[in-house]
Amino acid sequence: MKALLCSRLGGPDDLAIATLPDPVPGPGEAVVRVRLAALNFFDTLIIAGRYQVKPELPFSPGGEACGVVEALGEGATGVAVGDRVIVHAKFGTCAERIAVPAAGLARVPDTVTDEQAAGLTITYGTTLHALRDRARLRPGETLAVLGASGGVGLAAVELGALMGARVIACASSAEKLALAKSHGAHDLVDYGRDNLREALRRLSGGRGIDVVYDPIGGDYAEPALRSLAWKGRYLVIGFAAGEIPRIPLNLALIKGIDIQGVHWGVFVEREPEAHRANQVQLLDWVAQGRLTAKVDSVHPLEAYVDALGILQRREAMGKVLLRL
């Protein structure tokens, strides 16, 4: 089988397409023929050795995909050969076939396309866990989303609006904000031009924001945190800006703020039943047309440098997919 392979740490140019033996399912496993693999910002980090997950070399990047079950190992249950499924793994989905625990697979409804399903697991899974399980977002609350046009940001805009929140999308250009608005944002902040803290204060009528969803970090974290209302919740999603901010803890004390870490990967391992319920909910919403699962672009496997470059430059407006 063909696979995108990282044999030395570095950038997209250091990757190569290789031919590997087809995997064989072990006990409880399924082999899935991958149709589309979704790329995420963390893939640019994992191939550089800068992510918390550090696979042994060589490895294939990619943490999610859509494909068809081709074979089952002894004792594998929950899916059948021929089922179309979504796959989640710490790495390895940028290959034509992957062996994964069958219990972690979710069947894709007929009305959900491969493109929608391929990028649903991580970005929307992370976001639903963040908003529902961690922040316990309630209808009528205000939700400020930083990086609102990227993969997780756009998911937060959509899910926040679907859950009844007033969504304030924050991004660095008018084009990105227009995309967020088309996916349910009620108000917009261009933090490339406007002062983020002042804009959020103005849009909240001076009351403050109930929930901040932050996958960016860097210089935007503290002004966003300062914008929270009494007992506001600040969701730490990631650090796409590259810098992990140092937050003055007195800010949390003054307003009774909760700073909540969102480690979706550990949630999946520790609370598999809750994860499966979230997956079913997301697929149902897409099947009903209530979530778009926006795709930025689909690339052939051979164009992996271009695809990863979109994420490195933070140009993605939705999911970036590789077709295998």
Rank of each mutant, 00 (worst) to 15 (best):
Y213E: 09
G318K: 00
S297F: 06
N40G: 15
G82R: 10
V305Q: 15
L283D: 03
I86T: 13
R201S: 13
L283Q: 04
F267T: 04
C94Y: 01
R323I: 14
L249C: 08
D13I: 10
A103I: 07
L251E: 07
P101I: 06
W285R: 03
L308A: 01
E198C: 06
D258Q: 12
Q52T: 14
K54E: 14
G164N: 07
T113S: 15
R166Q: 14
R107N: 11
L308Q: 02
L137S: 01
L203P: 03
V305I: 14
G10W: 12
V34S: 04
L200T: 03
A102P: 04
G125R: 00
Q312P: 03
V298W: 04
I168R: 01
V305C: 08
G160W: 03
A30D: 08
Y213V: 09
L143E: 02
D190P: 06
V34E: 05
Y234W: 11
K90N: 08
G309Q: 04
K90L: 12
V85C: 08
L177M: 08
G63N: 06
D43Q: 07
V85E: 03
L228R: 02
V268A: 03
P139G: 11
L291I: 06
I237Y: 02
V24M: 07
V81E: 11
P21H: 10
S297N: 13
F91N: 00
N250C: 09
L15Y: 03
E273F: 13
Q116E: 14
D13F: 11
A316K: 00
G242V: 09
V298N: 04
G78K: 02
I209V: 15
A277W: 08
A144S: 05
L146V: 07
D210A: 10
A229I: 12
D190L: 08
I247E: 03
H299T: 13
V152F: 02
R290E: 15
D14G: 15
